[in-house]
């Protein structure tokens, strides 16, 4: 094995790497925020007394969780365009991610909500709180607190899955890398750098989730329970 590493060949492309990483972060941030909102709404719908609502949301969650992400994104980008719905690449990427994040988040959050003891809800009812207030004040925060580790690792997995958006030629980190290595023929070096950047983004996200956890769960902070 004689391989001459040449990272120098990548130097002219540092701005491309950086913009790819930023696009990855951008897609992730948008889809996590919107996806979390949709996920919470779907979790509540899954627990609703309206059977139709439960069924509709159930079909959505099952469909997403039982198909590969690449099929979903092709369906949204290529499939929908053949019936006249055309979206810019980044919009389609975020849209596909949101659909995906929403379904996984819904199941995680629902598990958290189901773990809230019914006696908590009874106590709130006995105090005269409305259904909406009970969800907002009694169920939501403890539920998310309990599933916070699963939720944040799901979001990190989704960040890594943004690489699939390169398949519809989104200029995120992997897409950028594909271009760079075809220009430089330095695929080993290129994907090594890309791997390091993904690791860096992962750690960045972990730090962000840790910080958010400290803000969102003051009880854990006060009692020194960690996040």
């Amino acid at each position: 094995m004689h391989y001459q590493f040449d990272f120098g060949a990548l130097l002219p492309y540092w701005q491309s790497f950086l913009s790819g990483a930023l696009t990855t972060i951008e897609i992730t941030v948008f889809s996590v925020i919107i996806g979390l909102g949709i996920g919470i709404a779907c979790a509540i719908a899954r627990r609703s007394q309206v059977a139709v609502l439960r069924a509709v949301v159930g079909v959505y969650i099952e469909a997403v969780r039982n198909t590969p992400f690449i099929v979903q994104i092709f369906f949204i980008f290529f499939g929908l365009s053949s019936v006249g719905i055309r979206m810019p690449i980044i919009a389609a990427s975020v849209f596909a991610m949101v659909i995906n994040v929403g379904a996984y988040t819904a199941e995680i959050v629902r598990a958290g909500m189901d773990s809230i003891h019914p006696s908590q809800i009874e106590a709130a009812q006995a105090l005269g709180l409305s259904k909406f207030q009970i969800y907002r004040d009694i169920i939501m925060l403890p539920a998310i607190e309990r599933v916070y580790p699963s939720l944040s690792s799901q979001f990190i997995l989704m960040m890594l899955a943004t690489s699939i958006c390169s398949q519809i030629s989104a200029e995120e980190l992997t897409g950028v890398a594909n271009n760079i290595q075809s220009n430089t023929f330095r695929s080993l070096e290129t994907y090594f750098v890309v791997a390091l950047l993904y690791i860096a983004i992962t750690y960045l996200m972990r730090a962000a989730f840790f910080g958010l956890g400290l803000i969102a769960f003051p009880r854990r902070r006060r009692l020194g329970l960690g996040v």
Binding site: S119, A126, L127, P142
Partner: peptide
Amino acid sequence: RALRRDIGMVFQSYNLFPHMTVAQNIMLA
């Protein structure tokens, strides 16, 4: 809710809200 405004209830398992301080538990309703 109007009925329950007139009735207070205390449970065997206390059922305080664990994510709220004592003050917040009392102030919520």
